[in-house]
Design a protein around this nucleic acid. Sequence first.
DNA 1: TCAAATATCAATCATAATCATCCAAATGTA
DNA 2: TACATTTGGATGATTATGATTGATATTTGA
Lengths: 250, 250
Amino acid sequence: MLTTKRQQIILSILKKQLNATIHELSEATNASISTIRRDLEQLEKEEKLKRVHGGASYIQTKLYEPKLEDKQGLNEVAKEQIAIEAGSLVEEGDCLFIDAGTTTRHILPHLVGKNNVVVTNAYHFVDFLLRQGIETYITGGRAKSKTGALIGVQAEDSLMSFRFDKCFVGINGIHPVHGFTTPDPEEARIKRMAIELSREAYVVADETKFQEVSFSKVADLKKASIITDLNETTLISALAKLTEVRVVNK
Amino acid sequence: MLTTKRQQIILSILKKQLNATIHELSEATNASISTIRRDLEQLEKEEKLKRVHGGASYIQTKLYEPKLEDKQGLNEVAKEQIAIEAGSLVEEGDCLFIDAGTTTRHILPHLVGKNNVVVTNAYHFVDFLLRQGIETYITGGRAKSKTGALIGVQAEDSLMSFRFDKCFVGINGIHPVHGFTTPDPEEARIKRMAIELSREAYVVADETKFQEVSFSKVADLKKASIITDLNETTLISALAKLTEVRVVNK
DNA sequence: TCAAATATCAATCATAATCATCCAAATGTA
DNA sequence: TACATTTGGATGATTATGATTGATATTTGA
């Protein structure tokens, strides 16, 4: 086996399980213990991993390392591209609403240094936003464990006291006739309110969300622009007659 | 098993339940008592946890008023004792307010299975509460990075829509004449409101908070009972004339 | 409240696992 | 073939582990 190939295997194992023993790696690559040792020595010099007694550990590259389940998500690249586009729309001093969701989560790192005020209904966004030095408000309400969103009358009431320059909302279904839809009626109400309270509203959605219809209607397509990685020209032009569509390339 | 892997497991257990016995950790990692001791010794040097007799305790990294004693995690045992007492006061079905703070944080693990509804102004409590299966509401408001509390008019407005059976509030200063005090005026307003909205109000405070006076007055002593580890009989009996004092022994 | 019973602690030791280093065999290259 | 590189195994040195011990700390029970 090629040396570089073997080292790639080592790194991919570490990326997956964060730690590995020398023996595990030796077995996975059919190389001897000594060879693995040499690989680890070299890869440590290149700062690709950290050696520990008995094996090696993955080096967390960024401050925010995406959680394991995120990392394995199929559409991570698309989400990141969409998030970059969304971030580029944000102007100095904008007051923003950012909805709970995995795609919207990706927008947060692209807000640095623009002096924004961010309101969110996702309690787990707050830490990250504060660490970036962004003035952060959170809506009140009942915490929903599955999506990490705040919902209910308290959430709606506290949302009412804000007005936004722009909002970014995640969505489950986009359909030319049925508009924007999402499974949870209470979440739908929050999304609808956020869109209504914004000067400019954007829905972020990767290609899997199109032609889908979910239980609760959020709004008609014309109410918000769409930012997506969708790659079907006919569908895009059909939607473009109803609202603005910003397409990013994967 | 890799040493680093084992230590990661230890830290994740502590993060989940805030404290653990040596035996628990030994069992969870299939390592001997001696090995766990060595791990704890090392992790304590790295300030990743605080050792206590019989086990270890989680060090809360973020939220903070920088009192030296707190920083070094010296009062972890006291906080846990206070939290146990607080938890024992909670009855089946109670609707609770739990204030942001390091001592109040310790109360959360003692709420399991009592079918409570919890309202909090600490955005970083939500994850833990939801994982315990507790119905959780959060006040809205501006997020303050130092203490992890939600403050401002939005927080006050959303707090107004609740009524509590019991509330547990952290405090910086307790003084027979000046009452309960805390540094931030906006946090003080939230604490005061929570106390007013509760049928029974409790202030949790370790011994370092007594005879201290801070900038903003929260309430008179008579407004809330005190749960503490204080060990000065003269001071306790003086305070006991003004309000209920529940003393736990370290 | 005090002393006995119990549990936990730090320190030490023998054992086992892993390490860095070296060397010879295997492989790749000119 | 001659040379450089890579590989796998062997060596003593280093480190991690688990059991033991006497010293402390905590709990129990009268």
